[in-house]
């Protein structure tokens, strides 16, 4: 709860201050390209994709450059192993291994003479959402247009240390702007029952929108990853945090090598609830 509200407060503060923003030209140095990983292993029916790319200069403004010729292997603590298939350049498909509660996974990437590893564990699904409701709100500070905000009911299992990410699909499409990031841990909601807890989206929903909310169980480390990511991609205003690099769990096994990696590999259990915005919600 805390970070959400602090974000909200800081947004309000920025709005109150009648500031102005414009785009300016800045000359930036270009750093060396680093290996970047973005991928999650789940228990969904569809195969999971791991993207292996490289960092590009900040103003490159193109899709990330793929890594060519990488060898990607996934092993589990239960003894399974699978070399991932490169579907298209830099896009690797997990064919057989699925995410199972309590199992640890190691993703190994061999590329350009370097070996990188990312370790993670699939944690229990502790945030159990049972239904969604909508509430109509007029356009206001912090809401770009009239529309419906989505809230959920559910409960959280006893025992601290759980976290989740909530991914929202609108009419079959994932919402993936930085304002749509929803994640939480159970620091303040351990074994709570949720009633009408608000989720944040870039834009409110409209009548007849089909909304699916997926709950992805994540580790505390992944929680901090998303928290740091959100802080960095929303970092403006007079109460900005110092710009800093977002954590990564992808490590070069040769720690003295200058070739580092960025990004995250995680494993989740996924469950979902869905609802449709109807007239009754107004």
């Amino acid at each position: 709860m805390n970070t959400r509200y602090i974000l909200f407060i800081l947004c309000c503060m920025t709005v109150l201050v009648s500031s102005c923003e414009d785009v300016v030209d800045v000359n930036l140095d270009s750093g060396p390209p680093l290996l970047a990983v973005d991928g999650w292993l789940t228990d969904r029916d569809i195969p999971d994709t791991i993207k292996v790319t490289q960092t590009s200069p900040y103003f490159s403004n193109t899709a990330p450059l793929s890594v060519v010729g990488a060898k990607v292997t996934l092993t589990t603590s239960s003894g399974e192993s699978e070399q991932l298939t490169e579907l298209s350049s830099g896009k690797f498909i997990v064919q057989n291994i699925r995410s199972i509660e309590g199992v640890s996974y190691t993703l190994k990437i061999e590329h350009d003479g370097e070996v990188y590893e990312a370790k993670t564990t699939a944690t229990r699904q502790s945030f159990l959402l049972d239904s969604l409701t909508f509430e109509f709100r007029e356009k206001s500070i912090g809401q770009k247009e009239d529309g419906y905000i989505v809230q959920y009911y559910g409960k959280e299992l006893e025992g601290k240390g759980d976290a989740c990410r909530l991914k929202i699909k609108k009419n079959g499409v994932y919402l993936n702007s930085k304002e749509d990031l929803n994640y939480m841990n159970d620091d303040f909601v351990d074994s709570a029952s949720f009633k009408k807890v608000r989720m944040f989206t870039e834009k409110p929903f409209q009548l007849n929108d089909e909304v699916i909310v997926e709950t992805w169980s994540i580790t505390m480390d992944a929680y901090h990853f998303y928290d740091e990511l959100r802080a960095q991609v929303n970092n403006g205003g007079i109460f900005a945090n110092p710009p800093a690099n977002v954590r990564t769990n992808v490590k070069n096994i040769n720690s003295s090598s200058s070739k580092k990696a960025v990004g995250y590999f995680g494993a989740s259990l996924v469950s979902s609830v869905s609802a449709k915005v109807t007239d009754a919600d107004k």
Binding site: G31, P33, T55, G263
Partner: peptide
């Protein structure tokens, strides 16, 4: 200031 970018 940053000198690179990646996507998540």
């Amino acid at each position: 200031f940053p000198n690179g970018r990646y996507e998540i």
